[in-house]
Amino acid sequence: MAGDPVLDGVPCMLIRGGTSKGAFFLAEDLPDDPRERDALLLRIMGTPDPRQVDGIGGAHPLTSKAAIVSRSEMAGIDVDYLFLQLGVDEAVVGTTQTCGNLLAGVGPFAVERGLVDAEASTTSLRIRMLNTDDVATATFATPDGRVDYDGDVGIDGVPGTAGRIDLDVGSGPERSLLPTGNVTDTIDGHEATLVSNGMPVVLLRASEFGVTGEETPEDLESRPELVEALEGIRRQAGPLMGLGDVTGQTVPKMFLLSAPRAGGAISTRAFIPHRVHAAIGVLMAASVAAGIRLPGAVGSELALLPDDGPDLIEHPSGVFPARVSVTRDDEGTWRATSTSIRTARKIFDGRVFPRPRL
């Protein structure tokens, strides 16, 4: 990193990826030391402050995110992508999860910054997600060698339409869909399915918590007993999923499942973990869709699965079409891959000036 970030600013591109928004950086434009890097990003976002009034954060976890991108040294991979979840009212930085929504912006950003040469009409590139070591292929329009953000694809949770971005995500052959090896586990007296298909999630029956599945995020967030109960389960699920102590982390995500109401496969309300998602993340949807396809899993008895086409995962602002393939190998291990359609849009490109200190 060159120069004084307070005086000279830091090159930054703000991108809406899927139903999230984040600040995108080249790795070379940030400090090498993770502690210095995290402190700088918190100052850029305006954290800690529930309004993030002195930074570019949007006063919500879905808009307090950062993506760090660099050329990859791994064979067959074009770029590496590190996702950071920045706290809003707390000065915390999460690195254990990735973000499938911001993943939609990684390919366009790589082309914009010259990390990858654009093709004449459509560009495909391979992305290694450093947080989870999963690999994604992103395909998007680049007419005349430039990213075209315009298009007629609409996704629930985002106004208007934009250009189509295809994302294919697969985990390594050594990784199981079920981190505990069990289709269900019991935590605090509740049957739970612990799944990781790009995002660690815990699937629970909404009815066991007095939730119908029709509640708004604001309604659910206003129930302290519910939030406390789910947090207790989340902290116990973390070590079971190989995540260690998750007290200060944002994974696993907690899902309350109920029968679908809008013609979809399942209805969801996602705690991420303390706020309730207004929609659903790409990899969250992929994990839920894979989970409900497992015989005996929580939610499988509620799901209406199509014979063909995507599983429509219902969420507070609409539905998310998740295409997953679930298989079981000769040793009985469940694995999955996912395909999704997202959009992204460049909002600004320039230099961001962090406040001088936290």
Rank of each mutant, 00 (worst) to 15 (best):
A67Q: 04
V10D: 00
N197H: 14
E215L: 05
A303W: 12
L294T: 02
P200G: 12
M241F: 04
V319A: 15
G242C: 10
V227I: 14
D33S: 12
V79M: 11
V324H: 10
G17I: 06
D188P: 00
P217N: 09
D156M: 10
A322H: 01
D54C: 08
S267P: 01
T337K: 15
M45V: 03
M284S: 15
R223N: 13
A270F: 01
R293D: 05
V352Y: 03
G46H: 00
A104D: 14
D4I: 06
Q249I: 02
V227G: 08
K21Q: 14
T268N: 02
N101L: 08
K253G: 04
M199F: 09
Q236R: 15
M284G: 15
D329I: 10
T161S: 14
M254E: 04
L294I: 12
D148F: 04
E225Y: 05
E208L: 06
R126Y: 12
F83N: 02
P316K: 06
P224F: 13
D219F: 10
D89L: 02
L220S: 06
L358H: 08
T212Y: 01
K65N: 06
A344F: 02
D349H: 10
P48Q: 01
G332Y: 02
V169Q: 12
G163T: 10
P61D: 10
I280Y: 01
I341V: 15
P224T: 03
P179D: 07
V158H: 09
F109C: 03
L42H: 04
K346H: 14
D188R: 10
V88Q: 09
G213L: 04
L7C: 11
L125F: 09
A206E: 11
I313P: 00
A322I: 07
D29W: 06
T47M: 03
E231V: 12
P321W: 10
L84M: 09
G76F: 06
D144N: 15
G114P: 09
T139G: 00
V183E: 02
T180C: 05
V10F: 02
G18S: 01
R205W: 02
R35F: 10
A27E: 15
P321A: 08
F320W: 13
D308E: 15
R323L: 12
K346E: 13
L30M: 14
Y149P: 08
R146D: 13
P5M: 11
G238C: 11
R71V: 14
G181Y: 08
V106M: 05
I44E: 00
I155R: 01
M241I: 11
L257A: 07
I313Y: 05
A136V: 01
S287G: 14
E28Q: 11
F25M: 06
P108L: 12
L14M: 14
V116D: 06
G46C: 07
R357Q: 09
A278V: 11
V298A: 08
R234G: 06
A279F: 00
L30W: 13
V147I: 08
S64W: 10
Y81A: 04
P321I: 06
V319P: 00
S338N: 09
L86H: 13
I292Q: 00
G17T: 04
H190D: 04
S338C: 14
V147R: 04
L115A: 01
G100T: 08
G18L: 00
L115R: 03
